[in-house]
Design a binder for these strands. Structure first.
Length: 332
DNA sequence: GTTCCACTGGAAGACTAGGTTT
DNA sequence: AAACCTAGTCTTCCAGTGGAAC
């Protein structure tokens, strides 16, 4: 059934992309100065999840690197590296400049100094989920360094600039902006077809089934691929020769569960306890939630910390909060 | 309309873990 | 071994919000 599992992974970057020619060309033109050794201007890529932002960024940089030897590139996921220190450290780490730098006891200034000393080929830094940065200072830091060009990826411009100051706002407004829209069903079908063709045995899935997946994914390529992956895995397990409509029916909810389970795994025991309490009811008000939390765990954290947890969990889309002050409610 | 108060989230500082220097 | 760093987490303190009760 599965011939090349890599193709079905989330992080896979295909050799050819479907239906994103104008975005690729736009981005490539922004990066073009790099090939002459000049710094490229910052590019901002925005759009909903699963519209190919990360994929297109990596694809375009990858293509540039195939054509030109002297281009470096770094990928930083700001979701995991949300502090200024961690983001900078992550870049240095991949450049191999951290040999004598340690995660603790080295001040941030030294990281910047070290980056300033970088004298290799021009480097494109992809800051994925840039709106998750707690301190946008990284953007200044990198901007000030001549050897580095930035590709910022965010869901929308507004959240990225939510608490940015004047200087940053005008700077981001001035940079090249590439917008991504949701895929249509036929575009998604084409993407899935390309993946299935390379990843699965031929004849493993029919066009009508691919279309059904595309339909269920609602324009989100990540969801679509994860459904295909989940279906292929099931088919493999059951020794089926083809992915049938029945298999798909089971794969769609299980792909959604997988996403949720992965997010839950990253929670600390305290956060998990909070989630379980919220999940137990229809909706819960903050006061009762905190009381229940104190009942449930040993050594409970303070109310303020719990509020930080809840905020983080809403960002993860694990829970939603409704209302602003007296009328606040939490639910899953 | 005014007052009350449960709730939010920013700011500053204490505390902790893990590292270096003396 | 002790003194001293730093980043990250958690707590303390507090001003601001906006429904609810009066």
């Amino acid at each position: 059934m599965i011939e090349d599992a890599r193709v079905l992974r989330d992080e896979f970057v295909p050799r050819e992309v479907e239906h994103r020619d104008s975005e690729v060309n736009h981005l490539a033109s922004v990066l073009a100065p790099i090939t002459d050794g000049k710094p490229a201007s910052t590019a901002l890529l925005t759009g909903p999840t699963g519209t190919g932002k990360t994929c297109i960024a990596q694809f375009t940089v990858g293509r540039l690197r195939r054509a030109h030897l002297d281009v470096e590139y770094q990928y930083v996921n700001c979701w995991q590296n949300y502090s200024r220190f961690r983001a900078l450290y992550s870049i240095l780490e991949d450049l191999g400049r951290t040999i004598d730098i340690h995660r603790r006891s080295t001040p941030r200034d030294e990281l910047i100094e070290r980056l300033a000393e970088y004298d290799g080929p021009p480097c494109v830094v992809i800051l994925d989920e840039a709106d998750q940065l707690e301190d946008e200072g990284v953007l200044y830091d990198l901007h000030a360094l001549s050897g580095f060009s930035m590709l910022l990826i965010a869901n929308d411009e507004a959240t990225l600039l939510a608490d940015a100051d004047e200087r940053l706002t005008s700077r981001v407004r001035g940079c090249e902006h590439v917008r991504f829209d949701r895929y249509t069903v036929s575009e998604l079908t084409a993407i899935l077809k390309a993946r299935a063709w390379r990843g699965l045995e031929s004849g493993a899935i029919e066009r009508s089934e691919l279309r059904a997946i595309a339909d269920a994914a609602a324009g989100d390529a990540r969801v679509a691929i994860s459904i295909l992956r989940s279906a292929a895995r099931r088919a493999q397990r059951e020794n089926a020769e083809r992915i049938t409509a029945d298999l798909l029916e089971a794969a769609i909810p299980s792909a959604q569960k997988e996403v949720r389970r992965k997010a839950l795994d990253t929670l600390t025991p305290h956060q998990r306890a909070l989630y379980d309490i919220v999940a137990d009811r229809e909706a819960i008000e903050p006061g009762t939630l905190y009381d229940a939390y104190r009942e449930r765990v040993d050594d409970p954290k303070t109310n303020r910390t719990v509020r930080n947890y809840l905020r983080k969990m809403t960002q993860y889309d694990l829970i939603v909060s409704e209302g602003t002050s007296r009328d606040r409610l939490y639910r899953v």
